[in-house]
């Protein structure tokens, strides 16, 4: 006769010896296997063993930002999925929803985050920011004002900034491929 209670005890003793895989790591692993990465996005892991810190580059194939490569860092803490991933743009870019320090204004990364969302939702959200920058929820007020009042001028400024030129006295990073 199998003693089910002793199996349970043995298993839990064995579990304790193994290096602890956190709930966050397990969940990120699941998110990554479900990820459907389009051609316009690439992920890289500086430390292969660390799934919680990685880089993402987005190469929009349409819209104002077409032709650029935009790099982001993802830092996921051990309270994921209860806390959202921390996402920063590692370049200085001219975008209504991204400030000069690289902070990103995307609702699901802040007040609208919920643990049933996953990495795919965040990636889709980021991609969307480059297709449809949003002037109503700005982090870079100048860029938002340009987008709202003069789309032609905004488009020109985006192109200038992407080439590493100055826009209104601020120098931006060259993001062209």
């Amino acid at each position: 006769m199998i003693k089910i209670w002793s199996i349970k005890k043995d298993n839990s003793a064995a579990e304790k010896k193994k290096p602890k895989v956190s709930a966050a790591q397990i969940r990120v692993q699941k998110d990554l296997t479900e990820l459907a990465l389009p051609d316009t996005m690439q992920m890289s892991f500086p430390d292969e063993a660390d799934l919680l810190n990685f880089n993402l580059s987005i190469t929009p194939d349409e819209g104002f930002y077409r032709g650029g490569v935009f790099r982001f860092t993802f830092n996921i803490n051990n309270n994921y999925p209860h806390d959202p991933p921390k996402v920063r743009c590692s370049q200085k870019i001219y975008h209504p929803n991204i400030d000069l320090e690289g902070n990103v204004c995307l609702n699901i990364l802040r007040e609208d985050w919920k643990p049933v969302l996953n990495l795919n939702s965040v990636l889709v959200g980021l991609q969307y920011l480059f297709l449809e920058p949003n002037a109503d929820d700005p982090l870079n007020k100048d860029a938002a004002e340009d987008l709202r009042t003069n789309r032609k001028n905004f488009e020109y400024n985006v192109k200038q900034s992407m080439r590493g030129k100055d826009v209104k006295g601020i120098n931006f990073d060259n993001v062209l491929m």
């Binding site: 298993n11 709930a23 397990i26 969940r27 999925p81 049933v116």
Partner: peptide, 17 residues
């Protein structure tokens, strides 16, 4: 479970059984 994505018949990531 929408939070941990483990089947309901399994347990949450902090439990063993």
């Amino acid at each position: 479970c929408g939070i941990c994505r483990v089947p309901f018949d399994g347990c949450c990531p902090t439990c063993k059984t």
